Simulated scan of single mutants.
Amino acid sequence: MPSTVSEAVATVRTSSISGLVDHLLSEPAIDPRLASALHAVQEAIAEPVADGPFLSVLLRTQGRRLEPIKDALLCLAGQTSQDFEVIVIDHDSDPVGAAAVRKIIASQPASFGGRIRILEVKGGNRARPLNAGIHAATGRYIAVFDDDDLLFGNWVAEFERVAETSSGRLLRGVVAVQNVAPEKWPQAQEGFRTISWPKAAYPREFDQLAHFEVNYSPFMSWAFPRSLFVTYGLEFDEDLTVCEDWDMILRGSTMCGVDDVNALTAIYRRWEGGASSYTDHSKDSWAWSEARVWEKLDGSTLVLPSGSVTDVRWLLAGRGARNELNALVHSPAWRLARPLRGFVRAVRYGRALAGKARRRVRW
């Protein structure tokens, strides 16, 4: 633990953009006009002091899975830290589903239910309710938790712990995955059952370059600083049919940087059977959304975290080795040596058979 206030301040990790500005200002020969402008940028991007709670939790629902949303609210009610608000975003629920969701919320204890608000959002893709939620949020950080996933009791507390030494950076926890399937419960009630043990299938530490290729971080593993939206003005891309989470993760992480929580905090439920984002959207829809995310990122200027040059060099070296191997496999010498390689494999196979025969004789 830091022994003085100055040491505590020194341990705070700032956003990537703030770090870039600090680096430019450290140049001794910087133009005074540029230095003055950068100092103004520093003031503008300083993390705002939030009057509200530590965390705003955006809980998306369409009123289709009522038993899972009961679990979701129970997970929130059981958090060891209660410094958060809940914004339930009802997106295109039918009247029956919307009424059922409101009944479930009304049944919550007053100490918890008093911190729950409901937003109704009509139309649009998966990003529209998220944008409505971030405009309504009052917390210092914003997290998204869909109505069919699970949280451990440390979810909020672990974000709080890392936020103490993180200013304006994204926070990322560790999430397990578990397969579930819908089934009928007694009295024809729509229920579900788990069909696998939870498995920590996602990397413990955030890898920026790996995330350029594919999303290794379920939505509820993230807490986004509110400054990402109110200061930098980012919004979720409402043109995307899917991948709205991956898009924001990539844009936010390259602008602000990421701090790892290094604790298991949630379970992502992967549905087998029934409706999900994988069944509601076609392969073409997924391919188009992924291509749009890459295109937007490719057209932007990126700030990469420390150590990225080493990682890029390693990737380039690996690509060079693969190119050399590919050239060797397709070379005339490799083709001419094919009979010899066949002979060597035959000899090895014969030796292996002879060894097995000798072992049988000994027995």
Rank of each mutant, 00 (worst) to 15 (best):
D237C: 06
D237I: 02
D237F: 04
D237V: 03
D239L: 09
L240C: 07
C243R: 04
C243F: 07
C243Q: 08
E244Y: 10
E244Q: 11
D245Q: 08
W246C: 14
W246S: 13
D247K: 01
D247H: 06
M248E: 01
M248H: 00
I249C: 01
L250R: 01
L250M: 09
L250N: 00
L250G: 00
R251C: 02
R251N: 02
R251L: 02
G252A: 08
G252Q: 05
G252R: 01
S253Q: 02
T254V: 15
T254M: 14
T254R: 13
T254I: 13
T254Y: 11
M255H: 05
M255A: 11
C256T: 06
C256D: 01
G257C: 06
G257P: 05
G257M: 04
V258D: 02
V258L: 04
V258S: 02
V258N: 01
V258G: 06
D259L: 07
D260Y: 04
D260C: 11
V261A: 04
V261I: 10
V261D: 04
V261E: 02
N262Q: 04
N262D: 12
N262I: 05
A263D: 13
A263P: 10
A263M: 11
A263W: 01
L264C: 01
L264N: 00
T265A: 04
T265W: 01
A266P: 12
A266Q: 12
A266M: 13
A266V: 12
I267L: 01
I267Y: 00
Y268I: 00
Y268S: 06
Y268A: 05
Y268F: 08
R269C: 12
R269A: 12
R270T: 05
R270Y: 13
R270A: 15
R270S: 14
W271Q: 09
W271T: 07
E272C: 03
E272L: 12
E272I: 05
G273F: 14
G273W: 13
G273T: 11
G274C: 08
G274A: 07
G274W: 07
G274M: 08
G274Q: 07
S276Y: 10
S277V: 10
S277W: 05
Y278Q: 15
T279W: 08
T279F: 07
D280R: 13
D280E: 15
D280Y: 10
D280W: 10
H281E: 12
H281C: 13
S282I: 05
S282T: 14
S282K: 07
K283H: 15
K283I: 14
S285V: 11
S285L: 11
S285M: 11
S285E: 15
W286D: 09
W286H: 14
W286V: 08
A287C: 10
W288C: 07
W288Q: 12
W288I: 12
S289V: 01
S289E: 03
S289G: 06
S289F: 02
S289K: 03
E290P: 00
E290K: 13
E290R: 13
E290T: 09
E290S: 09
